[in-house]
Structure formats: C-alpha cells, structure tokens
Design a protein around this nucleic acid. Structure first.
Lengths: 133, 133
DNA sequence: ACTTGACTTGGAGCTTACTCCAACGATTAT
DNA sequence: ATAATCGTTGGAGTAAGCTCCAAGTCAAGT
C-alpha cells in the first residue's frame, strides 16, 4: 500500500521532518493520520493542510495565526465568522507587507542601477547617502 | 540650535529608542553624530541611514544583510562591486518573497470570498480542505 | 532472534531581532 | 545646589520559530 511517510513529505515540500512534527504539535496543521504502529501516514487531506500551512508561512503569516485558523476550522461551522475575520486581518497584513516590499524594491533598483552605471563608466557621481525621495 | 534627539527620531519613525541604539551598535546604521555631552544628535545624513535601514528591515531584509551593506559602504569606493552583488542578491530574495505573498493572497482571497458567500447565503457548500489549484 | 534503519516523543538548545533593565552621566528647572 | 529629566552603556532577558538530541518503538531483512 502507498504509505506516505514524513520523509517523503519532507522531501517533496522542502521542509524538515522536525518542522513537520513541530507544526503538528503546535496545531498549525491538524493531527496527521497514523499507521497501526504509530508512524505518520499522510493522506491527501493531511497534505492539503501541510500545503496550506507552508504557503501561508512562506508569505509571512505567523505560526500563531495559522494555528488559530486551524483550531477554528476544526471546531466546525459555528466559527465561520471568526475565520472570515481572521483571514481578512491576515490579508490586510499581507497587503501592507506587499507595499513595504515594493518600496524597498524601488529603492534597491535605484541603487543597483547607480552601481551598475558606476562600474560601467568608472565614475562615482553620487554621495553614498543619496537616497531618493 | 535644532538638536535632533533619539526621542524625536523614535517618535518620527515609529521605532523604539532601544532599537535605534541596537541598530547602531551592530552596525546596521553608521555611528550617529553626538553632542559634546555624548548624546546622539541625528544629522540629515544619519537620518538618511536610519530611513534606509528601516525601509529595508520592514521589507524583510535581515539585520545582517543591511549591516554588511553599511560596512562595505563605509569602506569606500573599492567595495562597489561587492555592494552591487549584495543588493542584487537581496533583490532576488524580495522578488521571491513578493511571489510567495501573491500566492498566499490569491488563496486568502479565494477563501474569504467563500466564507463571505457562506455567511450571505447561510449555506456551506464546500469541504474545509478544499484548496484550489 | 537480532541487527538495521526509519520512526516516535519530550525536551533542551539555537538564531534572530529586539527589549528591558541597572547603574551611571549630562541638562534643565526651581 | 539640587532634584528631575533625559540621555548613556553593557549586559541580561524574551519571543518566535524552528533544530537537535536522547531514548525508545516498530518493521523489514538475514
């Protein structure tokens, strides 16, 4: 039978086994299915939770926020409003984050262009602290 | 005379005085100008560094990366190539980050729309683990 | 039966980025 | 002059998010 071990999940998603166990322990993903012997055997549903958690984590959501969402989801339909509020709050955070990254990228691009020019022409025609805007 | 204290900088940029001192101590900003008595008195140049550091930090650059850039900048023109490489590397990181956030936002928006619909219609017509894509 | 290898838990340890003192020095207000 | 206020440093403490063990269990191969 096609048992999906923690090793395979770790390899496939590029996350350590320790991290996967940690995520489960703190509730960032719900309890994973087990074999008779007690070893984790990830089902599609478990993998979906792992994927969701990793996606949100990589975007910068806190472990706490994701855990809270999972906790609410496991409580059932009565928590829809709470979940919606949580997700909206997290979206706000991501949008803000997005703006901050865009700003930093603008600045980085400006500096990079300057440095590239300096290397090409061999001329440094600006002061170090020159930060546009 | 218009002395700019750490208190004012803290207030203006929304960062604690402790953090400002910390940033200076570890070299994320160069040493700040001082009064005769030894108190910090931020000049325009100092403020430009503070602003740059905060912008980059808020986008997620590590304290170490910013410190390294500042260290190189203080070493003078011989470090242009290194600085360019550093900035390009950091830009790569930010672009990746941007993509991850975009992905998470897509997913969040999808879920949010579903929840809003469920609240409006009073009908839950999807499974919890339904994660599109 | 026994070694090998992958898995388990619980808990300690580590890294990053601050944050919070304590003890002291300098400026300002009375 | 002296108290209050604001600043200083050095170092310890904290929170988040893993990461790394140790000690044990389980399943497969010889």
């Amino acid at each position: 039978m096609g048992k999906i071990t923690i090793r395979e999940v770790s390899r496939q998603y590029g996350v350590t086994q320790d991290a996967l166990r940690y995520y489960e322990r703190i509730g960032m993903i719900p309890p994973v299915s087990r074999t008779a012997g007690g070893a984790r055997d990830y089902q599609d549903e478990d993998l979906a939770w792992v994927e969701l958690a990793l996606c949100m984590r990589s975007a910068g959501l806190s472990v706490e926020a994701i855990s809270e969402y999972v906790r609410l989801a496991r409580l059932g339909d009565g928590t829809i409003k709470d979940r919606l509020a949580l997700l909206q709050g997290q979206r706000e955070g991501l949008l803000e984050r997005q703006g901050q990254i865009a700003q930093a990228l603008e600045r980085l691009n400006y500096k990079i262009a300057r440095y590239e020019d300096a290397l090409k022409t061999g001329v440094l025609n600006w002061a170090e602290e020159e930060n546009q805007q």
